[in-house]
Each structure stands twice: as C-alpha cells, then as structure tokens.
Simulated assay, not measured.
Amino acid sequence: MTRRGLMGAAMALPLASPALAQSFPSRPIRIVIGFPPGGGIDILARLMAPHMGASLGQPVVVENRPGANGLVATQAVAQGDADGHAIFFGTTGNLAVNPVLYPTMPVDVLRDFAPLSHVASLAFVMVVNPQVPARTLAEFIALAKSQPGKLNFASSGNGGLPHLSGELLNAAAGIQTVHVPYRGSAPAFTDVIAGQCQFMFDALAIAQPHIESGRVRALATTGPGKLAALPDLPVAKDTVPGFEVTNWYGMSLRAGTPAAIINRLHRDVAAALAVPEVARRAADLGLDLVGSSPDAFATFQRAEIDRWGIVVRRANITAS
C-alpha cells in the first residue's frame, strides 16, 4: 500500500469504528469455547448467554470447538472478523500457559486478541490417598522432604494447570515429587484412590465427591482464601508462602475490535455476572466471579503468562 493509501486508511479508522459500533450487534454473538459441553466454563457461559442476549438484543450462543488444547477455538476467533460477534472464552491454560508451552503457536494471544474481561476464578484442592501419613500440608511437605523423588502426583494431562500446580509446589516448598500424567481427571483420581499415586490437584467440583466418600483426603485449597463449600479446609499459601493457584476464565475478542464495542460487551458481561441466579449457580461450581475491566484483564493476563512461563521453564515442561 502507498503512503497516501496508508494515510487514507488511518484517517478512515476513526470514522469506521463509530459506524461499526452503532450497528453492533447486527447478528447473533458466539461465545467460543475450546472444551466439550458440560464443564465449568461451558456451564458459566450458558448461564451468562441469555442475560447478555437480552441486553444486546441479539441471541448469544455458546459454540464448543474442542481440540488441540483449545487451539481450534482460539484460532477460530483470532482469525475471524474484528467486529465483536465472536468472543473467545478461555482458561488459564488457553490464555497464559499455552503461549509458553507451545512457543510456535500460530496464534499469539497478546497480539491477536483484545482482552475483554477476567470473568471468574476457580481454586483447586490438593488431595492425597488416605494411606498417606500426613494430615496437614506441613506434614506432607515434611514427608516429601524425607523421601525425595518417592512421592508421585497425578494430573489430568501434561502441561495442564493441575500438573503445573504440582511443579509449583515442588519449587515453593523445596520438595521433589514425580509427575504422572493421565488422559483426564477421572483416571488420575482412580490411581490416587488406588494408591498408585499419592496426591493430585483438581477443581473442587471434581474432587468433592471423592472427598465426601473418604476415597481421598483434602489437605488444602490453592486459592487466595477459604472455600465456602469446605470452610475448614486450610489455605495452602498460609503454609507455603507464594503457593497460590487459581484456574481463571477470561474473555477476549479479535484484536482490532473497536473500543466502543469492547466497552459495550464488557458492560453486558459485568451485568450478566451480577444476576443473582448466575452468581448463585457460579458459587455452587466453586467459582469466584470477577468481571474485571479490559485494561485490568490485560495486566493480569501478562502477569500470568510471565508467572507460568517461569514454572514451565524451571520444570523443563514440554508439550506432548
């Protein structure tokens, strides 16, 4: 493009954006998720969608596009139109871990996305096989230090946040435990219950039935504070300073989406999260609703990429 053409395009942008924003939305809006139906992020999206649709005057539909650790869904939005009609709804793994785990990803989440909102956070719980002779996290750390390399932790998959939680505990507590990856949470729990692995980290909604049945014992929550569902469960960072893990959900739009559309959608997201029924159902899932501003989410996301990048590099984790 010639210099005159570039100047003309630049001059047209301030005019085009308001016109696009005034006609928004002109068709149904898609919330694109890189996971199958039924998970926590999918449930939350389906709770929010009708309230957002009522405010926007267009249907808001949830589109599940699982595959390649969320990359299929990520690309679908990152390579689409920058008009606000497709929202990527991702997790810590999609928006903070994958960028450092897959350095040659075809999508750069900082370059190709415009942050919309940090929607919610979900603390994990640390559980152990009941035969492990540790009733507290401090006792578990002492046990691990007395047997370096002898304790195994299961996870739902290599490079996932449950895996990184174990590696972060190793670093923060100065212990050596061995990671054993599985294809999902269910087989990981099966082997912790059977004693093939001694401990693991996962979401409360997945772990709670096993905790209540006594098949595993909860030692701590990884979040910033107590869990409403397990108010007597200690907070891990009170024993191991610096050890805090939350699996967060965030919404992003295609880079280049006009600011007026970003701000409009942020208001609709925040309003949906404030609906009492949405808040109640989210609490049942163990979710802490956030609804931060686009700027606050951008700052938070960059910090999370830096933080998990340190863990990935220190533990020499590679995608597999």
Rank of each mutant, 00 (worst) to 15 (best):
M1K: 13
R3K: 14
R4Y: 10
G5T: 14
A10Q: 11
P14A: 09
P18N: 07
L20W: 08
A21Y: 05
F24E: 03
S26I: 11
P28V: 12
D42W: 08
I43L: 14
A45P: 04
Q58S: 11
P59K: 07
V60M: 07
A68V: 08
A68H: 13
T74N: 07
Q75D: 08
D81W: 10
F88M: 06
F89R: 02
T92W: 06
G93L: 13
G93T: 14
N98G: 00
P103A: 07
T104W: 11
V107Y: 12
L110F: 06
R111G: 03
L122D: 12
V125S: 04
Q131K: 15
R135P: 01
T136S: 15
A138G: 09
A144C: 15
A144P: 00
G149W: 08
L151W: 03
F153Q: 00
A154K: 00
S156W: 00
E167S: 01
L168Y: 10
N170D: 12
G174Q: 10
G174S: 12
V178G: 00
V178P: 01
V178W: 03
P187D: 03
F189L: 15
V192N: 01
G195Y: 12
Q196S: 08
C197L: 03
D202N: 07
I206Q: 09
A207V: 03
A218T: 02
T222D: 04
G223Y: 03
G225C: 05
L227M: 14
V235N: 05
A236L: 07
D238N: 15
V240W: 09
P241R: 11
G242M: 12
M251S: 10
L253A: 04
A260W: 04
P276C: 11
R281Y: 10
S292V: 09
S293R: 05
S293D: 13
A296T: 10
F297R: 05
A298W: 05
F300L: 11
I310H: 14
I310Y: 11
V312M: 02
